[in-house]
Design a protein around this nucleic acid. Structure first.
Lengths: 217, 217
DNA sequence: GGTTGGTCGGGAAATTTTCCCGAATTGGAC
DNA sequence: GTCCAATTCGGGAAAATTTCCCGACCAACC
């Protein structure tokens, strides 16, 4: 952990959209004491960049294609128990948020939040606190009031990823290729997902995924 | 159309995410001759801002909550036949793209594109040209190879009814029962629908049905 | 050290998908 | 009226997928 110097907060930026990344970089660096020391557009690069730069804070969009961003979080957390990981996502479903925190995130801010919320969250993380935007706090609060978990709670991470890709319209072959699995495994997961969720049809699966915020239509 | 001055290109930015908007603003204004003269986060405000500022170019994300961004495009186009409207979206489905152009957009760039593609597209629009990112061009090119009008035009009445029920989540057995057909016939239609529409997956079929207003989610 | 739980795939039977086909019906067009 | 084209309905057969079952591996946990 040679995170660094006397002045400034070093940041690793992970997002699969180049334009968006560029935008964040400018917004963050406009703060003066923030410095984006590296960028990545996938889970593997994110982990490599973290090893190479040991930034104070990782700001990461977890809705990246292919391997889940959650994997990147887990990898980074496994390597450094005091890494500061801030998830910056469009999604605000309780399951997503809980999944991120379970994977090892320290904070969660939605892209719909005011820019200042992102800045504030980063500073909170640096101080060693957890942080989340107001909408996330509200979602978690509501969720904690009802004993019923989402249907997605019964699904493992791999299952969720495969469900997402299925709902997005990917073929078995594409998913297998995306995740480096055999088609047989994808087929097995596909079947497992259907039985676990009680859905009898792929169309029902799509609707479920959309309801749970996994797919966008 | 008092668009403006001797130097610079004025831009209206429409996106429902404040942070993203802020990011784009900085990216664009970094170009020097670009100036973001207004922002909006919904269709109604976008139209009001356009009336107020008459910008050279409107850069708009159409996947906003509530009223469709397409509506905003239509409104602006209705008011000014020479407005320059650039859609900047995450989606690259042919139907989405065609819908945007039909509504009156002059260009379409995906958020996954290189930042320079956005800049180039804006300059193309200012010169009066149309513009789209490479991935969009590819999608439209592929789509144009099939002699499709509105996709559903190629389907018969029975096929549409079966597509609707499929998208609603009905099983082959249920559809056969509902329509008093043999399962074999339903299966044949199911296959026919897929080949006619070019969809390879039931999930893609659901998305198509929803896009075409056949199913509601 | 044993036990859970997630991941990854093989195997085999049941089912569906994928194309091919023909027949009946309808609605014009000539 | 006749012919043509499109639509509707379903059979057949090979290919592919689904549906279950299974074992192996690994990490975490008691």
């Amino acid at each position: 952990m040679t995170a660094s110097q006397t002045e400034g907060i070093s940041i690793l930026l992970v997002d699969d959209h180049p334009v968006v990344r560029q935008g964040y970089r400018r917004v963050l660096e406009h703060q003066g004491d923030f410095q984006v020391v590296a960028e990545a557009d996938n889970a593997a690069d994110a982990y490599r960049a973290f090893k190479a730069h040991a930034p104070h804070v990782v700001v990461m969009d977890i809705s990246m294609p292919g391997a889940s961003g959650l994997e990147a979080i887990r990898n980074i957390r496994a390597r450094s128990s005091d890494a500061r990981i801030l998830v910056f996502s469009m999604h605000c479903e309780a399951t997503q948020v809980k999944a991120a925190f379970n994977a090892g995130a320290n904070g969660y801010v939605t892209k719909g939040s005011d820019p200042s919320a992102l800045i504030r969250a980063i500073r909170s993380l640096v101080r060693g606190e957890q942080a989340m935007s107001d909408d996330i706090a509200r979602v978690l609060a509501l969720e904690s009031l009802s004993p019923s978990g989402s249907v997605l709670d019964q699904l493992g991470e791999r299952e969720i990823e495969i469900l997402r890709q299925l709902a997005a319209g990917a073929t078995t072959e594409q998913i297998a290729s995306n995740l480096n699995l055999s088609m047989k495994t994808v087929q097995n997961y596909h079947y497992l997902i259907k039985t676990k969720t009680g859905m009898r049809t792929d169309a029902q699966l799509v609707r479920l995924a959309v309801e749970c915020g996994l797919a966008s239509l």
